[in-house]
Design a protein around this nucleic acid. Structure first.
Length: 576
RNA sequence: GCCCCCGUAGCUCAGCCGGACAGAGCAUCGGAUUUCUAAUCCGACGGCCGCAGGUUCGAGUCCUGCCGGGGGCGCCA
């Protein structure tokens, strides 16, 4: 199946060839000819809208153009009907037998027809990236979950992925924290909840620093000592990182997220003087009011400070150094950053500098809107922060209550495992299923939805299929289902088959636009088609042949659901 | 002041490169379980797609302006 093109590209190439045969010498204008899924089933399976747009260039009426393209279309076994409609649409209906064979091909491929689009290419994905010494709260989940889905998706498409958790482990906050640690440490609290205690120390020290000049000066001194390699401060700093990573790792384990690298900003510290030198020598940055400032006259961006007047490097310098280091070490085709919207300007500046320094890799900032509460923003100071662990706990608790109710006979251990999969899946899906760039208002009921457009809905569809397959094997032991052909005859079966066959195109689209929500939408629609099928069409008690075809269709849906959910980082238990 | 994003059904949101009558979930109302898991399915109700112009054969989608909300803009990261 590796050499097989996806449905979209197959039909698009063919349709373009039809236009080229009808209008020789117009290749440039015809490059835009494309085929897309039909807006409505009544129009067929796919449609081509190119004729209307070409009317001016080709100096012909759209309907005449469409008719000519149809007349010149080369033979194509995939297409049963090709017809003109409305002002110049071309509607395509796939051949039933061809579609069934296509599905057979997908099912015999462990990759379900997904092309190895990224073979030989490397992408670095920088995501999650929490700050050391601060607990992860619900604002951190989006980067983690979206980044992880992009990670899995790219890996599946054959990219070599370097997932890097770029910890915030360097900077002025550590001077404040060390000073706080020296004066306010509560050892019992640190032992009980280390990161919470570190945060408390930071907040307390920070507040005092705002009020007292001397305290602030002392914080700065601690930072300078740390950055100069003072053994005592270095040891403290390493301890902060160790404690924080312990807590982060616990959350990542629950979320089933793993990184290839966990390099903090500190990793690039030694490279900063070299970067500054290059920025200065190339004229990209110059002195201004004691600071070193990068200007972006050509790019219409405001200037940014790369080195402060006290000589400390700013985070723009760190991020440029990080880009250069990644390019040098991994030679990636793309570096993808997943952060919230507040960093848009920052990354535009960093990317502009990197390009000026000769970086050719595609630099992408995948940003998402800040999570808000109905009553407004949340902040540590207002004390209305919802800790990520609390959210995950609540999700599992709600899911467990549901499992106990609907599956009272399931062993307790399994109930807990299902509740974990369902609860965590629900939380992830809430972030993955919407356009990340919308403003998001957090609500418990939405984040933990267990019905409707939610992960549990998909998991439920999957579990029901597993149950059907088990029952089939019980009643018909030893039967090799592959020996029976797929015969999608009913409209709902055909719709299901067509939807399944689109899976590879969906993966490519989601990766190209860096939007896992495209995959989530697809899976939701798939589960919807399936639920309709399941609810309204009997299969186990049908006659041999029909029965096997339908059971195989079920298996196909299960396979795509499982693979799709896995790419979103969501488990698909066989029983829920 | 300048820049970026968002504004779609009562609520929460989809809507890919502009395409044929604008779609879900929740909520409300009405149906479906002797059957393969009802965390489900079927149906009803519900929309000047913020407003006003413009481009286009065609605009929720692109452009301009305005209104409303969020974020950012030289010494935090």
């Amino acid at each position: 199946m590796d050499n097989m093109s996806t449905l979209n590209s197959l039909l698009t190439d063919w349709m373009r060839a039809a236009f080229q045969a009808a209008f020789p010498g117009q290749d440039q204008a015809l490059a835009a000819v494309a085929v897309e899924p039909a807006a409505s089933p009544e129009f067929g399976d796919y449609q081509c809208n190119a004729a209307m747009g070409l009317a001016r260039t080709l100096r012909q009426a759209p309907r005449a153009i469409a008719a000519a393209a149809i007349a010149h279309a080369p033979p194509q076994p995939a297409v049963a009907r090709l017809e003109q409609a409305g002002p110049g649409f071309i509607n395509l209906t796939l051949d039933d037998a061809w579609l069934a064979a296509r599905l057979e091909g997908m099912l015999s491929d462990p990759r379900l027809g997904a092309p190895l689009a990224g073979a030989g290419r490397t992408v670095v994905i920088d995501y999650s990236s929490p700050n050391v010494a601060k607990p992860m709260h619900i604002g951190h989940i989006r980067s983690t979950v979206i980044g992880n889905a992009l990670d899995r998706l790219h890996r599946f498409l054959g990219y070599r992925v370097i997932a890097d958790n770029h910890l915030g482990d360097w900077g002025t906050q550590f001077g404040i924290l060390i000073q706080g640690y020296r004066h306010f440490l509560d050892r019992a609290a640190l032992a009980a909840a280390p990161v919470e205690e570190l945060e408390r120390l930071y907040v307390r020290s920070y507040e005092r620093a705002r009020a007292e000049e001397d305290w602030m000066a002392q914080c700065r001194k601690e930072l300078v000592k740390l950055q100069a390699g003072d053994p005592e401060n270095l040891a403290l700093w390493q301890e902060f990182i160790r404690l924080s990573r312990g807590e982060f790792d616990r959350i990542y384990a629950r979320l089933n997220v793993t990184f290839d690298l966990t390099r903090g900003e500190s990793h690039y510290h030694d490279r900063l003087p070299g970067v500054i030198e290059r920025l200065e020598s190339t004229g990209l940055a110059r002195e201004s009011e004691g600071a070193l400032v990068a200007f972006f006259d050509g790019d219409k961006l405001p200037p940014c400070i790369v080195r402060k007047s006290d000589g400390a490097f700013n985070y723009a310098a760190t991020d440029v150094a990080t880009v250069l280091s990644r390019v040098e070490e991994f030679n990636p085709a793309a570096i993808i950053y997943v952060t919230d919207e507040r960093q848009q300007l920052h990354f535009r500046q960093v990317f502009a500098l990197a390009r000026q320094l000769g970086v050719g890799a595609e630099l992408v900032h995948v940003w998402f809107g800040l999570m808000r509460l109905p009553e407004g923003t949340f902040s540590t100071r207002q004390g209305n922060v919802i800790k990520l662990e609390m959210l995950l706990d609540e999700a599992e608790t709600r899911a467990l209550a549901m499992v106990r109710e609907s599956s009272p006979n399931m062993p307790a251990e399994q109930q807990r495992a299902v509740a974990r999969a369902v609860g965590i899946g629900a939380v992830k899906y809430a972030d993955l299923s919407q356009n990340p760039q919308s403003l998001v208002t957090f609500s418990w009921d939405k984040a933990l939805a267990l019905t409707g457009n939610s992960a549990p809905y998909l998991q439920y569809a999957h579990a029901r299929i597993c149950s059907v397959l088990d029952k089939y094997r019980e009643r018909h032991p030893g039967v090799r289902l592959e020996n029976y052909p797929l015969r999608p005859e009913l409209p709902v079966e055909r719709a299901l088959s067509l939807h399944l066959a689109r899976f590879p195109d969906i993966l490519l689209g989601a990766a190209r636009l860096y939007r896992p929500s495209i995959l989530a939408d697809y899976l939701y629609a798939l589960a919807g088609h399936y639920s309709n099928f399941y609810q309204n069409v009997p299969f186990l008690k049908e006659a041999e042949g029909i029965r096997e075809s339908r059971v195989r269709l079920c298996a196909a849906v299960a396979g795509v659901l499982r693979q799709g959910l896995d790419l979103l980082g969501i488990e698909a238990p066989e029983r829920i």
